[in-house]
Amino acid sequence: MPLGIVLRRAPGVTRWQRYSWTASAVLPGAGPADWRELRREGEAVEYHAATPVLELHGAETEAYLHGLHSETPSIYVILRDGAEGDCPLEVVTVTASPYEAQDYTDSGEEIVEKIPMPPGLRAWIWDFVEAFHQDEAFVKRKRDKTRVDLVEDGIGDARISQTADVYRAPGSARKVRLQ
């Protein structure tokens, strides 16, 4: 589904930052855009910056469920610093998976903005999850019954019956003397 990304430019709070940029909304089903101005309130301006496609994958349904069950179900917009000027941010991608959004925060090069999901988009993702989610049964790992204490450890030659073999483990020297 194409999602229009609305970025808001407000005056900076400090003298070192001229503007403050935030992602303020998503527009489900929006057409293509290239930094089209939507609204202006004094010095604050909202732009329809880009329209990336939100892709849902059947293997990611657990992550979508986690996001849908959160206090505020959200869409995550991944931004990257672009060229200076009126449009200094580049929209990289958009995702509904909080796990994927967290992966983008690891590098520190991208900016991850969290935007609350509109009700229609939430219903669309919920329908996708209901259609493709499969619970995976928890399988506890079982120990194998192999006795590891019966095997001689070390790489020494068993034909050498001296305790000074530097490759033999200390415990294996007693086994050789007992034979």
Rank of each mutant, 00 (worst) to 15 (best):
L178K: 10
A164K: 07
A169C: 09
D127F: 13
I160S: 13
L178Q: 12
G154P: 00
T163A: 06
K145G: 00
R168C: 07
D153E: 06
A123T: 14
D144S: 10
Q134S: 14
Q134P: 14
I160T: 09
V166Y: 08
S172G: 10
V166Q: 09
V129Y: 02
K142P: 00
W124V: 13
F138L: 11
G154K: 02
A158E: 12
R168K: 03
S161Q: 07
T163F: 00
V176L: 01
D149Q: 04
K140P: 05
D127N: 15
Q162F: 02
Y167A: 11
A131R: 15
D135F: 06
S172A: 09
R122C: 09
G120L: 05
V151H: 08
V151T: 07
R143F: 02
V166H: 10
A123Y: 02
D165Y: 03
T163I: 00
I155H: 04
Q134E: 05
V176C: 12
R141E: 08
Y167C: 12
D149G: 06
V139L: 14
V176H: 04
I160K: 07
E152I: 11
W124A: 15
D149L: 01
G171V: 00
V151C: 02
G120H: 05
K145V: 09
R147Y: 01
T146L: 05
E130T: 14
T146C: 01
T146H: 05
I125H: 01
K145M: 00
D135P: 14
G156S: 13
L150Q: 01
S172L: 03
R143N: 02
Y167K: 10
D149C: 06
L121T: 08
L121G: 03
K175E: 10
S161T: 08
D135N: 11
P170N: 15
R177E: 06
V166P: 13
H133K: 08
S161D: 10
L150W: 04
W126C: 15
F128A: 01
F138S: 12
S161M: 03
A131V: 13
L150R: 12
R122W: 02
D149V: 02
V166G: 13
R177M: 05
A164V: 05
L121V: 10
V151I: 04
R122H: 04
L178I: 12
P170S: 13
R168F: 03
W124Y: 15
S172C: 11
Q134Y: 05
K142G: 09
G154S: 02
R141G: 00
R177C: 08
Q162C: 10
D135S: 14
D153M: 13
R168L: 04
V129K: 02
R141V: 03
R143Q: 11
R143D: 12
T163R: 00
H133S: 02
V148A: 09
S161E: 06
R177H: 12
A169M: 05
G171K: 04
S172R: 05
A137T: 06
Q134M: 04
V148F: 13
T163Y: 00
A131I: 14
E136D: 10
